[in-house]
Design a protein around this nucleic acid. Structure first.
Lengths: 223, 223
DNA sequence: TACCAGACTTGATTCAGGTCAAGGTGATGG
DNA sequence: CCATCACCTTGACCTGAATCAAGTCTGGTA
């Protein structure tokens, strides 16, 4: 979770060798889990390629996806001694792993990194506030609309009131577990949006937002 | 949000005068709001006495309480340029305000403070993960049970399997908005717990957990 | 002591979203 | 080119929690 932490931003013209020294690369195959909820937290991760999903589980298997992460995102801030979440690759991912000990050496060498990490945590906290409102107070329609709009903001293209092409790299199950709904409800609402000409479903993963403005309105409960 | 940040922990035998210089005290009357969601974020706050609730609103007035804070808790991590939440005193509170600029001077003078803040943000993030699971995936019964157990952990008394006396300083409305339920549902479930001899309701604010273990089980969906 | 206002509880009813149960679709491999 | 499998969609029905509507309890006031 947390976007665009090019870790080097805070090291600038830094000694990259040091950084490389403290980290190791790894690749994770689709659907493979690489952080176990509750396991001792020894590493930070930075997603360098592909996508990852973060989640927590209830004992009976109910799952809440707490976020999706992609290139540049940082994982592991929500962990003190043990991880507060599990993580799993979504279609294959590459990661950079920073053992905590090494991370500490890095923050000592580059103090601004510590500040950067806090900023990242703050950004993440602000996002979570919004997500709690979504989960606690929004209707299914509003949730799905919010999800679509959220996906737009991942496109760095500034968003006019023109149609926007989106792709949803995650299966419906993941969308449902992210929004606190069932896959049937997600599916039904996407179909409804289509019928209302708010979106066009070109394929399972490719969706066009035909009326982004209206979808934003719905997302905020102002339709 | 975030507990037990005695800011001096990270300054230790520090120059308290400097700290005092950078902060100002304030008191907020019951129900009085002192952080406006979306307003430019210029200050951090530390709760020094009383209680505070944090929340976000939807345009039509739906409210999600994202946390309660009390003595020692830190507010304002979930803010970059503008606050991601509103805050309001719950029965009167006293606060210490740290303007960002002053805070920056403090972190420069006491670098470990920066680390401390990140830790605090991490702790908060981990809590939020759990809360997202609550809001997205738990039943009303599980939510209320979780809330009761959560309140226990605010008591620093270690919790045996004996009855535990709790007080709930917030009105039912706030509990409901915290759990993503209505006040009727909260009320009904507390009554049900009482009928099942899981709790005893001594007064509106005073509740005794008669079977904390069982309530924990319910909270985790394992009843 | 009686009255009042605000907060809480309880009951009856409704409805959004879940559950259960068929189909459809599209990518992969034989 | 068809079979298969995993994933998605759609429909019928059900249910947990919301909504609507009375009560009830409490503490404060006169």
């Amino acid at each position: 979770m947390g976007r665009r932490l090019s870790i080097c931003n805070s090291i600038d013209d830094c000694d990259l060798a040091i950084l490389a020294n403290e980290s190791s690369r790894m690749t994770v195959a689709d659907g493979r889990s690489f952080i176990e909820e509750g396991a001792p937290a020894n590493d930070f991760f930075v997603v360098t390629g592909g996508r990852v999903k973060l989640f927590t589980l209830l004992p009976d298997g109910r799952r809440q996806i707490t976020g999706f992460a992609e290139g540049g995102d940082f994982l592991g801030l929500a962990a003190s001694t043990s991880y507060a979440f599990g993580a799993e690759a979504l279609g294959g991912a590459t990661l950079c792993r920073f053992p905590h000990a090494g991370m500490q050496r890095l923050t000592e060498r580059f103090p601004s990194l510590e500040h950067r990490l806090r900023e990242e945590a703050s950004r993440e906290l602000a996002l979570m506030q919004a997500r709690m409102t979504l989960l606690g107070r929004k209707t299914a329609r509003e949730r799905v609309a919010t999800f679509l709009i959220e996906r737009c903001s991942h496109l760095d293209r500034p968003d006019p009131s023109h149609p926007i092409e989106l792709d949803l790299p995650m299966p419906r199950t993941d969308i449902a577990d992210y929004l606190g709904l069932t896959i049937e409800t997600v599916s039904r609402i996407l179909s409804a949006f289509k019928k209302e000409k708010l979106i066009n479903i070109r394929s399972i993963t490719h969706i066009t937002l035909l009326a982004p403005e209206r979808i934003s309105m719905i997302a905020e409960g102002m339709e």
